Simulated scan of single mutants.
Amino acid sequence: MDITGSVALVTGANRGIGRRFVDELLDRRAEKVYAAARRPGTVEVSDPRVEVLRLDLLDADSVSRAAAQARDVTLLVNNAGIATRVDLVTGDPDAIRLELDTHFFGTLGVIRAFTPVLAANGGGAVVNVLSALSWFTTAGAGAYAVAKAAAWSMTNGVRLDLAGQGTLVQGVHLGAADTDMMAGYDVPKIDPVDVARASLDGVASGAIEVLVDDASRFVKASLAQDPAGFYAQVLGA
């Protein structure tokens, strides 16, 4: 898919990785970018090609309205998300449900709403920003990891569902990016713009999966091994 002349919609576009997607799309000469956010007033606009939309993953009506307004979209970037930082056994069950409602059901709801839009515009592409935590978990990230694992499986399922209409479905995995969401973690972090660049390079080449950094590549490779050694490292044993 050629990014030049495309019409993209990016969820969670007000900051972090989402904002970098908007910038990178503009740099690659997208015709228009819908910058979607739960609070539209938090989106900074400095280019006439950007149109701000309200889109809340937990509000189905807002998703439907966004799809009705953005009828020219050819590239959908599902970036919006949360991190409740709760464990599965001791954490608040409502927080665990919120993670799943956001990352799984919310993202799926956006895809379902925009599927006919993409079909009408030739197929286009869907990008789901996932995580290396789709494949493992660590202390304080149990709910997030479960939700991202579900989103990864959903990405693979949606890819099959949309193959007939010619829609590329890409999953993007990374360890940690230097965003507000990761501000409290003392771990190596990549520049958020690297995520957008790697993903859009993959869209241009038809890649269905993009591993942005060494962390995501290491975790993915470990899936073929006995998990005992990997989790010994996670636990510091």
Rank of each mutant, 00 (worst) to 15 (best):
A143P: 13
A228Y: 11
A139Y: 09
R38S: 07
T155D: 10
V52H: 04
V193G: 06
A95T: 09
Y34I: 03
L53I: 10
R159G: 03
S205I: 08
R217M: 12
V45F: 13
T42Y: 10
K189A: 06
R49N: 05
L25T: 02
L160T: 08
I96F: 13
D59H: 09
N128L: 09
G184H: 08
T137N: 11
I208V: 14
P40D: 14
E44T: 15
G41D: 14
P192S: 04
A66F: 14
V212S: 07
R19F: 03
V117N: 02
A198I: 08
P116V: 08
R97W: 10
T138R: 14
D56Q: 06
W135N: 07
G164V: 13
L26F: 12
G16M: 02
V169R: 00
L100H: 03
D87I: 09
A183T: 05
N78I: 08
T107R: 05
Q233N: 10
D186C: 08
A151D: 13
D201Y: 06
L88S: 03
L160N: 07
Q69E: 09
I190P: 04
L100S: 00
N156D: 13
A60K: 04
G18A: 12
L76Y: 00
R29A: 13
M181W: 02
D226W: 03
S46P: 05
I96H: 08
A67T: 00
T137Y: 06
D186E: 15
G5L: 15
L160G: 11
E99M: 14
R71F: 11
R39V: 13
G171A: 13
V89K: 12
Y185P: 02
L211D: 14
G12M: 10
G109L: 03
L75P: 01
A83K: 07
P116G: 01
A228F: 11
L211T: 07
F21N: 09
Y144Q: 10
I190L: 12
R71P: 05
G175D: 06
G202P: 07
E31F: 15
W152R: 14
M154D: 12
L133A: 13
G16Q: 06
Q170P: 00
S46Q: 12
G175H: 00
I17L: 13
I17P: 05
Y231C: 03
V129S: 07
M181Y: 02
M154V: 04
A8H: 00
G184E: 07
R19D: 00
V50E: 00
S6F: 11
